[in-house]
Every structure is written in C-alpha cells, then in structure tokens.
Amino acid sequence: MEVRTIKVFTTVDNINLHTQVVDMSMTYGQQFGPTYLDGADVTKIKPHNSHEGKTFYVLPNDDTLRVEAFEYYHTTDPSFLGRYMSALNHTKKWKYPQVNGLTSIKWADNNCYLATALLTLQQIELKFNPPALQDAYYRARAGEAANFCALILAYCNKTVGELGDVRETMSYLFQHANLDSCKRVLNVVCKTCGQQQTTLKGVEAVMYMGTLSYEQFKKGVQIPCTCGKQATKYLVQQESPFVMMSAPPAQYELKHGTFTCASEYTGNYQCGHYKHITSKETLYCIDGALLTKSSEYKGPITDVFYKENSYTTTIK
C-alpha cells in the first residue's frame, strides 16, 4: 500500500517557510505537534488534498525554529505562539472599519479597549522592536488589523473576551517599542525636605499616572512627601515624541487643539466601556464603527496623549 502524501510549508514567522512532505494517514499533531492554519487549530486533523502548498504555523520545537521565533517575536515564552494563534482565530472574524481616516474595530468580545489602543497607536510616533509587531502594525494602518490585535493580546497575556485596560495595554506595548531616546527629568520640591531631581528613561519617561493635564504637570502637581507634608512635583525636561497622561476616570474637559487623542471610560472596574476622542479640525468621538463630532467635550476621561518633541522648564 502506497503512502499518500502532500507537500506543505511549516513556519513560526510566515517569513521562513520549511518544506514538509506530510503523510495523509496521520494527523498534523502526530507529525508536527500543535499546528495552526489561519489561526485555526488543526492539530487533530489529517492532511487533505486542499492543504497542498498551504502554510501551517507550528510551535518552535527545534533550534532553527526557536531562533526564527525569537528573532521575529522577541520572546522565548513557549506558550506565546499558541496564544497568538488562538487569538487570531477570533480577531480574523472582527470587522476593521476605516473611521475618520483611522483603522478602528467594530465592537465584539469586549474589544473596546483594543480599538482605543489601536486608534491611539496610529496617532503617536512609535516604532516597535519585534519585527512581528512592526509588520502587523503597518498592515493594521492599511486596514488589516487582525494579526496586530492578536499579537497585542498575546504580548499582554490576554484572551479574547476578557476586559482590558488601555493604560495597561499601552504599557505592555511600550515595553516592546523603541523608547531608548526618551528621557524625563522631574523635580520634587518640599518646604521641609528641599528639592530632589529624578531622571527617568524609556517607558517611565512617557507615562504618568495622577493627572490628565500635561500643562498642569509642567506647572506642578501636589504629591505627598515622605515627611508627610505636601510637596510639588513638576516637569523639568521632556525628550520624547509623545507623552501619555493618565488618571482614574473623572469628568474632564478636553479643549480642541490642546491634545492629540484621549480615552474615555464609562462604567466601573468590573464592567465598563471605552471610547476614543481625537482632536482634528474639530473633536471626534470614535466608538467602534461609530463616529460623532463636537466642538467641545466633557466626560469621564482616563488617558490623554500629547505630541511632544523637546521641553525644558522655565521655572527657576
């Protein structure tokens, strides 16, 4: 009895394709271990004539594949690729409408935090270190965002349907971005203890939790000093293409032309909904596939993004 075979390709990165001759009487799992086709788990399936010449994702289970996976995804987590594939199996079914010149995501599976993050990423200057993220990001900007969303979920250790947080998501993504040249110098002034300067680099240099107003941050924000008295913390120097200011959701007025974009969060910790506000020729609110415009805006804002380049204080 002759062994019926077909020729397929296996890959971990969709760049390096490895030619395989597979036995049609055995499952993919018996031949390769966990195997995925377009995100779908085909591990328990036997090869079919229609699979001839198709590319299958496999887990990096030998040295060659491990090197290829690390170079593309910059992670050695053995569960990463499987999590990416199972997320992709959902995100490829989502709709990605162009809204006001940006790629958004039609609401499904509690994905409003991903839509808000995706919209924000198209408006701030950011370059990702893992080629996987950078490639998928370019495709997302062009309207094909399924891979990018699935990668975000995998890097953030999230599953489809789980509630997510924009600030946490951005923080994970910033860790995989090139923020080497970003720098922030802060000064804390206390009447009792004097003053202390701190220099922050990388992710810490672009994120701040405690106030939404970048102007206020430049002037000074009140913080408790270690001595128990009130101290003032203010920005001395900022070198970065953008800054992200966050605070627990509270009524906040966004003035046209003073910011790049913002995240609105309605609801409580267990259950809520994100919308995205962007400042173009007027203010726009993007909620999944829905767009509304207004000249002014007041609502429960939790993150505001500002364009920056270089700032030095005039406070002496």
Rank of each mutant, 00 (worst) to 15 (best):
G33V: 06
C261R: 02
L153Q: 04
Q230T: 13
S171F: 15
R141T: 09
Y265I: 01
N89Q: 07
F80A: 04
Y137P: 03
Q238G: 07
L290H: 15
Y208L: 05
D63F: 11
N14Y: 12
K229A: 13
T292H: 11
Y36N: 03
P224T: 13
V12T: 09
N14Q: 12
N111E: 03
A117D: 01
A132M: 07
P300Q: 10
V42E: 06
L235Q: 01
K54S: 13
E253P: 07
G101C: 08
W94Y: 03
L81V: 14
Q20T: 10
A250E: 12
T103E: 02
F32E: 10
L173M: 14
H256G: 08
V42D: 02
G33K: 07
K280A: 14
E296R: 10
M26T: 15
I152L: 04
T5W: 12
T120D: 07
A108G: 05
F259Y: 00
T312D: 04
E264I: 11
M209C: 15
V189L: 08
T120P: 06
Y214L: 12
P248E: 02
T55Y: 07
E239Q: 12
Q195V: 15
E239I: 11
I315A: 15
T302F: 00
D41P: 12
F128H: 07
F242K: 01
S25P: 02
R4C: 13
F32P: 01
F174T: 06
M24W: 05
L212F: 00
F148V: 03
L88C: 02
D180F: 04
K229P: 06
N16E: 06
T43K: 10
H273M: 01
N111R: 01
G53A: 11
Y265M: 05
C112F: 01
G143N: 03
V236W: 09
M170A: 00
M207G: 02
L126M: 05
H176P: 07
E52D: 10
N187L: 11
C285T: 13
P248L: 08
V206D: 07
P34R: 12
C112Q: 04
H276Q: 04
D109V: 00
N49I: 10
D303F: 02
C227Q: 02
C261M: 01
K95I: 11
K255F: 05
K7R: 13
T43L: 04
K201M: 10
Y84W: 00
A40N: 14
Q122K: 03
V206E: 05
L59V: 09
A87Q: 13
L291N: 09
L81G: 07
P131R: 04
F174N: 01
S279T: 03
G202V: 02
G288I: 00
E296Y: 11
L291M: 14
F70E: 11
D77V: 02
I223Y: 11
Q134I: 05
P34G: 09
L179H: 05
V166C: 13
G194Y: 04
T27Q: 13
M85S: 06
L283M: 10
S79V: 14
L283S: 04
E308S: 07
I6V: 13
V42C: 12
E204V: 07
K280M: 11
Y297G: 01
E2T: 09
T266C: 05
E71I: 10
P300E: 14
P34H: 08
A177F: 07
P300A: 07
L17Y: 01
Y214G: 02
L65G: 09
T258H: 10
C227N: 01
K298F: 12
N309Q: 09
T258I: 08
D13L: 01
E68P: 03
F259W: 03
A145H: 01
Y72N: 10
L290Y: 15
T258N: 03
N49T: 09
G202H: 08
L212W: 01
D62Y: 06
V160S: 02
V21C: 12
V189P: 07
G161T: 00
G161P: 01
A145C: 06
K46P: 10
A40G: 12
G29Q: 08
C190K: 05
L81R: 02
L200V: 10
T292N: 12
N49V: 13
T313S: 14
L151T: 04
M209F: 15
S79F: 09
N61W: 08
M207A: 07
A250Y: 10
G29S: 10
R139F: 02
A289H: 13
T260Y: 03
E68S: 08
E144Y: 09
D135K: 06
L37G: 07
A115Q: 13
G164A: 07
Y265A: 06
E253N: 10
T226A: 14
P248N: 15
H48W: 11
T35K: 09
R83L: 08
A262R: 02
K191C: 13
I45Y: 14
T232P: 03
N178H: 04
L151S: 07
T11V: 05
H74R: 11
V12K: 08
T292L: 07
L173Q: 03
Y265L: 00
L118A: 06
A262Y: 02
Q134F: 03
V99G: 00
Q222I: 10
S294Y: 13
G288V: 04
H48C: 11
S104W: 08
P130R: 05
A177C: 15
Q196N: 08
Y73E: 07
S25Y: 06
V188G: 13
T76E: 10
F242N: 02
F242R: 03
V22G: 07
K54L: 14
K46D: 13
M245K: 01
V8K: 07
G202C: 04
Q175N: 07
V188K: 10
I105N: 06
Q197P: 05
Y265T: 01
P78G: 07
A177G: 02
V99C: 05
Q31F: 12
L235E: 03
R167L: 04
M85R: 02
G257H: 00
T192V: 09
T19K: 13
K275R: 14
K229G: 15
K255L: 08
F174E: 01
H176N: 06
G220P: 08
Y306P: 02
K255V: 15
H90E: 11
K127C: 10
T43W: 06
L114S: 08
T266N: 11
G267K: 15
L290D: 14
D13R: 10
K219E: 00
L291H: 12
S25D: 15
G53K: 12
T103S: 01
P97G: 11
Q195T: 15
G33S: 05
E52P: 06
E52F: 09
T282Q: 10
P130Y: 02
